[in-house]
Amino acid sequence: MTPSLQTPHSGYHFSPWLPGRFFEGWYYRVTLPQLGESFAFMYSIEDPQGGQPHSGGAAQILRPGDRYLWQTLPDVMGFWAAGDGLALNHCRREG
């Protein structure tokens, strides 16, 4: 991606050496002007080292017509994100 098209602050900022709790989220909005509609996708991760009461992730979608969908992702060990660009993934681990 060219630098002029890079989303600001799109990298993952977690460091296991920082003390205290951690939260990071990404928000994307897509507008379809020809339809007069928008939808948004939000993804978040909290306490990604795991083993904490609030450790987990969430995926949320705000659909046209203010319809809202969400899914919690309690297994943070399946989460991955790039520190220098917009790339993230949350795989379900087979157990």
Rank of each mutant, 00 (worst) to 15 (best):
P48Q: 07
F41Q: 04
P8A: 15
L62E: 12
F23C: 04
H90L: 06
S44F: 02
G95W: 13
Q60Y: 07
S44T: 02
G95F: 01
T72C: 05
M42Y: 05
R93K: 15
Q52L: 06
N89D: 11
P19E: 05
G20S: 03
A59Y: 03
M1K: 07
L35Q: 14
P3M: 02
R21I: 10
M1D: 04
L73A: 05
P3V: 03
D66C: 01
P19Q: 12
L32K: 04
V76R: 01
G83R: 13
W70T: 13
D66A: 13
W80Q: 03
G83L: 02
R29C: 15
Y27W: 11
Y12F: 14
G56H: 03
P3G: 02
S15D: 10
T31S: 14
I45M: 13
G25E: 05
E46N: 06
M77H: 00
Y68V: 15
A58P: 03
R63C: 15
R21P: 00
G56A: 12
R93P: 08
Q49M: 12
M77E: 11
G20T: 09
Y12L: 07
R63M: 14
F22G: 00
R63I: 00
N89A: 01
L88Y: 09
V76K: 09
S15T: 08
M42R: 13
V76E: 05
Y28E: 08
P3S: 12
H90G: 01
Y43W: 09
Y68T: 12
L35W: 11
G57S: 14
D84M: 02
Q6G: 02
Q52M: 11
Q34N: 03
G56R: 02
R29L: 06
G20K: 10
Q52I: 00
P64A: 13
S44A: 15
Q49C: 06
L88V: 12
L35I: 12
N89L: 04
M77G: 10
G11W: 01
S4C: 04
R29W: 00
P74D: 04
Q34H: 05
N89F: 00
T31Q: 06
G78H: 10
C91Y: 06
W70N: 14
T2N: 10
Y27K: 08
S15Y: 04
I61A: 11
D47N: 15
M77R: 03
F23K: 01
F14R: 02
N89K: 00
E37S: 10
S4I: 11
L69R: 08
M42N: 08
P3I: 07
M42E: 13
S4F: 14
E94Q: 08
G65W: 15
F39C: 08
L86N: 08
H9C: 09
F23N: 05
G95C: 10
Y68G: 01
R93I: 14
P74M: 14
G65R: 13
F23Q: 06
Q52Y: 09
T31V: 14
F14S: 03
S10E: 07
V76I: 15
